[in-house]
Design a binder for these strands. Sequence first.
DNA 1: CTTTCCTATGAATCTTCTG
DNA 2: CCAGAAGATTCATAGGAAA
Lengths: 357, 357
Amino acid sequence: MPFDQILRGECVETMRALPGGQVDCIFADPPYNLQLRGELRRPDESIVDGVDDSWDKFADYETYDRFTRDWLTEARRLLHKDGTIWVIGSYHNVFRLGAIMQDLGFWILNDIVWRKANPMPNFRGRRFTNAHETLIWAARGPASKYRFNYQAMKALNDDVQMRSDWYLPLCTGNERLKNAHGLKLHPTQKPESLLHRVLVASTQPEDLVLDPFCGSGTTPAMAKRLGRRFVAIERHPDYIAAAQERVDREVRLPDEQLAITPAKREAPRVPFGSFVERGALPAGTTLFDRQRRLRATVTPDGTLVSGAQRGSIHKLGAQLTNAPSCNGWTFWHFERDGVLTPIDILRTEADPLRAAG
Amino acid sequence: MPFDQILRGECVETMRALPGGQVDCIFADPPYNLQLRGELRRPDESIVDGVDDSWDKFADYETYDRFTRDWLTEARRLLHKDGTIWVIGSYHNVFRLGAIMQDLGFWILNDIVWRKANPMPNFRGRRFTNAHETLIWAARGPASKYRFNYQAMKALNDDVQMRSDWYLPLCTGNERLKNAHGLKLHPTQKPESLLHRVLVASTQPEDLVLDPFCGSGTTPAMAKRLGRRFVAIERHPDYIAAAQERVDREVRLPDEQLAITPAKREAPRVPFGSFVERGALPAGTTLFDRQRRLRATVTPDGTLVSGAQRGSIHKLGAQLTNAPSCNGWTFWHFERDGVLTPIDILRTEADPLRAAG
DNA sequence: CTTTCCTATGAATCTTCTG
DNA sequence: CCAGAAGATTCATAGGAAA
């Protein structure tokens, strides 16, 4: 695998030469097929309303669909079974992208709306201002154990769940790459903030990120900055040169700045019994629910007893509340300095990383 | 054409019996094919009342596509050559909808994002909160001379172009139809504010609006209120009965309140029109100045009328007081609980998410 | 009557590890 | 692969009860 390189070549062909199942995350910003729009502007379709015209149209859409199916098929082959893919598009192409992704077996996780802070107005006043683009986020398949850094996204959003609508400015100013004439180098350069959120949400440091339509290099640049590895594909030498220069200028953040809010799911599991053994909650200790309406006694093997009922902290909590399940760590409390404290505090004190979220 | 009726029957079959080319606007809220698997519980163990109705179940994508192609084909036949169609969906189905619409010859004008003010959270923390739905707005074909009330939309948005992302609350509270047990009558009742914006944007009084999936009747009810004619199709007798009752209760606004006009002013942060849409100050509401010496009536696009004069809240206030300018937010008052209250209170009470995103 | 608290609920593709 | 157990997880509103 050619790590941290921008490969020159056609997207499908170049992907075919790479080994399968090794990519953790793909970000793809495919072309919108401008040819399609030109074809469809041919005069007076509505008057004819006929077969000839629909044949024309069908051929055009079919060409775009074939291209889309080809690159998405290769992308899916390269993707690790637990990897995810992001594809961005507008109403011109995103519906075809999404339908083909579903047909190929991708499992859509979210459609994300990038709300542009500063979109181009509609000059003719004939439509609503097209103020957003759509990203499709999908796993390789329905059974994928994909990565989603939930707590990091929540932290990024003032401690409320991140929604599917993202409000971000366009790429402008110094961030926008210019050519020798001072004009924008690439017509659709994506803002770094967009890639930042995408990569922080769905990858971790050292993950391999693939961008089959590299363009001005926002994906590899942000991957490098965030400590992710990348493979990028681009066919235009001018874009490759500019993107390579951009990546070279980029500095990887120090490790301690790459750490995100940890997920409790990924914290090491600590058996409740270990706190019994260590004497933090010795056998015989009484535990309560939050309202002090239920109580149970700790036994030497780390199970709880309450009357005739016995079980793990989770099982007994579920039993006593007639619930299908229960997180015993947050359900049960013990008395410390006269205050009822969740037993989860013991895990937090043993491993402060757990406190997050 | 059976004007202003809710027809009982299967959607495709019933459409086949109608004459073609006479419908000005279609609003369609087809089944989403959600593919929900198990039951879902909130963190407090309560069960989420998901959509498990048989009408939303399809064997596979192919079956759903066939159904979609069938009803969209008939919809296109019924549509006037200059008519437009709105179709709403989520990521489960909207990509298939959009691709099939393009294949059938519809010409997409915008994809509109309905950003939900109060979406259901993601309870397991495994995805982004699914906080929006997508509407596709399309003309019958590329050459259609479709209707778009640009100035009305601009007026509704405080004289700034209306964008493709709309922030509107879910249908809750008194607006939500209940069955005999006090439970929601229909699992997916759409808010009136959504239909208000759709109909004011793309139709004019006396236009014929078709809804092939009538459900709880939001489309015919809002069509009647706004002076549009309708044909609605629904197969479930319970929904028909409730929708018919709802339409019968609805009152058509007087003609002078239905007229929409252009306006020119700069943009405060929160559009006055959004409060009209959401029903906080519905069209027809009377506003007063602080001394109750002047009065004006709210119209559907958020302008005010007073006798022969019409304008935005700011403009009309200035006109009536012969002042060069006027802050309509503090000038105009409405009666709430018998007390004259400045309309500015609505902005104060409004949700901060609207502006910040 | 006002303020505060509690409960209900919405188009939802909603877990992961060990044995 | 399956069964079973561990254990992680919610935001904006509306409405009613309680203070």
